[in-house]
Write a protein that binds this DNA or RNA. Structure first.
Lengths: 224, 224
DNA sequence: GTAAAATTAGACGCCATTGTCTAAGACGTC
DNA sequence: GACGTCTTAGACAATGGCGTCTAATTTTAC
């Protein structure tokens, strides 16, 4: 019951959770067998039943564990959103790359999207927390961040919530097929997808050319 | 072996396919039981084994059946893409509503997205056909259609493929949560989502304001 | 009407999995 | 070194699903 034992138990628990996440993700709840999870975790089956009463208890624990990791990572990513309007295109592009790589296209993102589709109907309350604190929080936070950029005059947005959802959607537009079919996009794909997304986003919501145009061509407003 | 038998057998087959689609969709391959499919189809288990040798054969037949329906519907929808540049916003909006309602947010769309995620790794070749003829064909076709609109001067697009993917992504931006969590969007949601998507798309890719601005406000190009 | 084909309900063997139990071993503290 | 806890391997019964088989019944063809 002292330090070392705690650490040992904790290591076992994490090993089990990781293995269970892998197996549940690739096989689904019904297709996953405790024996396979035990083998992947390098742990005896009895140890699993010792920590988690039954298969469903383990499943819930796995989902909550991954949700916590994913939400922590998302929060960490959101803190890197650009707050300066200089180099907005590059800054937003880098942000989209980080967001996609670390939150949406990564292991945990794939796990949650997959499981919410396969088991969401069976455990409606289980994934509600993820919906609220994951994708829900993302668009809420982005909406607020866009509002700040708009207040600075760097963006022209009428509906911040819509813009936030469209920003995320555009960021995934080029990766949707890769993500849907389980692949992991390469760095080049991530970079190009983010570049395309931000360019289009700024064409739609960027500051009008008149206020930032260079000497080559200018736009002037002529009131009619 | 003549008409009536064919019709009777055909009805059984369709009944089985429909029931199997329901059960496979909600339970996954591993979680679906032949007995439950038989019960939903109001058919004896032996009849299922009579038509399809084993569970996997039935599963493949179901996926191919749904894929065919979905691809036929998609093709039908693509033929309603606006070819006139008058009222482009309204026409594109109506198209997005139809596309979402009949191809992406409908029963078959949900089935295919769900199954490709849960069973795609186990049957890589099975869903390859859908990827090519479904989402793949959609963006290819949209790309060509946008090229025609751009050629008419109604749109200004540098990369048609990117624009096509972004068009689809924007069309789903407001519905992604509903779709991911298995819900079916209402008509109002469909309408509003399409309106938001097309507005942003045209802000990014629409003909520049200078060429179509009304008397209220005009933009003029001033060469520097 | 009759024969062939299809369908049905039920029983059956087989196998995988779940969850429990037990005895033995490993690891820690005292 | 003694003790308690955690872990392990394996056996175990119970359950449920798959796929087969059979005999009876219905549907269909001619």
């Amino acid at each position: 019951m002292t330090g070392h034992t705690q650490r040992g138990q904790c290591a076992k628990r994490m090993s089990i959770l990781d293995a269970a996440a892998d197996v549940f993700c690739s096989q689904g709840f019904a297709g996953a067998s405790i024996d396979e999870i035990a083998a992947v975790a390098c742990v005896s089956r009895q140890t699993i039943y010792n920590h988690y009463r039954e298969k469903e208890t383990l499943f819930v624990a796995v989902v909550e564990d991954v949700m916590n990791r994913a939400n922590t990572m998302l929060f960490s990513m959101l803190s890197t959103f650009p707050d300066s309007a200089d180099n907005l295109e590059d800054d937003l592009t880098a942000f989209v790359v980080r967001l996609n790589r670390n939150c949406i296209c990564n292991h945990d993102g794939k796990f949650l999207r997959k499981l919410v589709q396969t088991e969401g109907e069976r455990y409606p309350h289980l994934f509600e927390s993820w919906r609220l604190h994951g994708p829900g929080k993302l668009t809420t936070a982005l909406s607020a961040l866009f509002a700040r950029l708009a207040h600075k005059g760097a963006l022209v947005i009428d509906d911040f919530d819509v813009a936030a959802r469209q920003f995320v959607a555009l960021g995934n537009a080029d990766l949707q097929m890769t993500v849907l079919f389980g692949g992991v996009p390469t760095d080049e794909e991530l970079e190009k997808a983010a570049r395309n997304a931000v360019r289009t986003f700024l064409k739609a919501y960027g500051r009008p050319a008149a206020e930032k145009a260079g000497p080559q061509s200018q736009l002037a407003v002529i009131s009619g």
